Amino acid sequence: MDATDTVLGFVNSHDGAAVDPDRVDNFVDGTRFRDWLAARELPAEASDADAAAARELREALIDLVRTHSAEVAAERLAEAEAQLSRFALRHPLTSVITASGVALRPAQPGVFGDVLAGVAELSLSGRWARLKTCRAHPCRWVFVDQTRNGSAVYCSPGCASKAAMRAYRERKKASSS
């Protein structure tokens, strides 16, 4: 699994049932988190505390990604960065040097280290800034902006269409008032 798939799979594990009934929070408890890990062929030992830690990491990453396409309150951003620093201390990365270059890998096995290594790889490659959160409420899906100028704000044409229709209805309602 490449860095983009690792990070997107992790951050897009949140509840999105309002947008798509198949989107459920995979980190709601230890059982669901274990199932999510097993589906990705990762070590599947997880407790409710591990699921809570996964939710914290996920929300901190989403807050950072949100800065790529929208404003995030300074306090919220500072808290997300502090949480990520704490995760980085508990799940350190080591450099692996090969003939083809240097990569950061988790010092110990586990999904948290894998995700942090994925974020580091995306950042070092310049792809981190291309991750954005969908602006359509309540989607919050993280996607890779593949537009040439980096201006995408919706994860899919469906979300863009719903947002356009919502804006149209609001304008129509305002003009008839």
Rank of each mutant, 00 (worst) to 15 (best):
74 A>D: 15
74 A>S: 13
75 E>R: 12
75 E>F: 11
75 E>H: 14
76 R>N: 10
77 L>D: 08
77 L>V: 08
77 L>R: 12
78 A>L: 07
79 E>P: 03
80 A>Y: 05
81 E>T: 11
81 E>V: 07
82 A>H: 12
82 A>T: 13
83 Q>A: 15
83 Q>Y: 04
83 Q>W: 05
83 Q>G: 02
84 L>S: 02
84 L>H: 02
86 R>V: 10
87 F>M: 05
87 F>G: 01
88 A>C: 06
88 A>E: 13
89 L>R: 14
89 L>N: 09
89 L>A: 15
91 H>G: 05
91 H>Y: 15
92 P>S: 05
93 L>G: 02
93 L>F: 03
93 L>V: 01
93 L>M: 04
94 T>W: 11
94 T>R: 15
95 S>W: 09
95 S>P: 04
95 S>K: 10
96 V>Y: 12
96 V>K: 10
97 I>E: 12
98 T>N: 04
98 T>M: 06
99 A>H: 09
100 S>P: 00
100 S>W: 09
101 G>H: 11
101 G>N: 08
102 V>Y: 07
102 V>W: 12
103 A>N: 07
103 A>Q: 14
104 L>T: 04
104 L>P: 00
104 L>H: 14
104 L>D: 12
104 L>Q: 12
104 L>G: 04
104 L>I: 03
105 R>Y: 10
105 R>L: 14
105 R>S: 13
105 R>I: 12
105 R>E: 15
106 P>E: 12
106 P>F: 08
106 P>Q: 11
107 A>E: 15
107 A>M: 13
108 Q>H: 15
108 Q>C: 07
109 P>T: 11
109 P>V: 07
110 G>E: 08
111 V>P: 06
111 V>E: 04
111 V>S: 02
113 G>N: 05
113 G>V: 00
113 G>L: 01
114 D>W: 01
114 D>E: 14
115 V>Y: 03
116 L>W: 00
116 L>M: 01
116 L>H: 00
116 L>Q: 00
117 A>D: 07
117 A>T: 03
119 V>M: 07
119 V>K: 03
119 V>F: 02
120 A>W: 02
120 A>C: 05
120 A>M: 06
121 E>A: 14
121 E>Q: 13
121 E>W: 02
122 L>M: 03
122 L>A: 01
123 S>Y: 11
123 S>C: 08
123 S>E: 14
124 L>P: 01
124 L>M: 14
125 S>I: 07
126 G>E: 09
126 G>N: 10
127 R>F: 07
